[in-house]
Amino acid sequence: MTRSAIPVLETERLVLKGPAPEDYPNFEATFTSYRARFMGGPLSEYESWMLYAAEIGHWQIHGFGMWMIHDRETDATLGMAGGWYPKGWPEREIAWVIWPRVEGRGIALEAVHAARGWCYDRLGWTTAVTYVDPKNASSVRLCERLGATLDEDARTVDSHDIVYRHPAPAALAATPLAARIAAELADHIDPSCKPKGVPLD
């Protein structure tokens, strides 16, 4: 089979590509681990593979889905981000999962911001939600960094989750929120505390 025609998104540090067969071991490592406890896991290897296949089928069914996040320099996979709308979901979701040990570099923010922008710009979404386990502190925090706010009136998937509603497309274009996201990403990309050379004395 030739490679899929899933669109490729490029950001400063990342390339988002369709999930490929060779990326599966990294997905399995995360979804069979404790890391997956907020995403219905840990799964068995069989369940994990069936889910990975479904992630690809989701693209074919809906025309959108979850991208594999790659490091632009090394091509290593770092996690997944994208649109997720399986049967039973009340609304289209912006979803993500970051592999263990990738946290703390703003990777999820950069990937999800790009994925959300694509769903808004290319698919014409006017709104989007993220379903999150309230115990998943880092995802709750990311929702807030993305400008999403708790929507207590929205339907949940299974009552164990809470719903964050993302800002509408207009609220992301040339606004203080957009500037704040850009500034946070710029800081991750070029930390001001990083040594820039050998000090002269």
Binding site: M1, P21, L51, A53, I56, G57, I61, P86, G88
Partner: peptide, 21 residues
């Protein structure tokens, strides 16, 4: 399977082709 489970199965069937050829 529930309707949700059947939908996931269809997505998995499609993805199986992509992963295995």
């Amino acid at each position: 399977k529930s309707p949700e489970g059947a939908w996931r199965q269809l997505a998995t069937e499609i993805g199986h082709w992509a992963l295995r050829g």
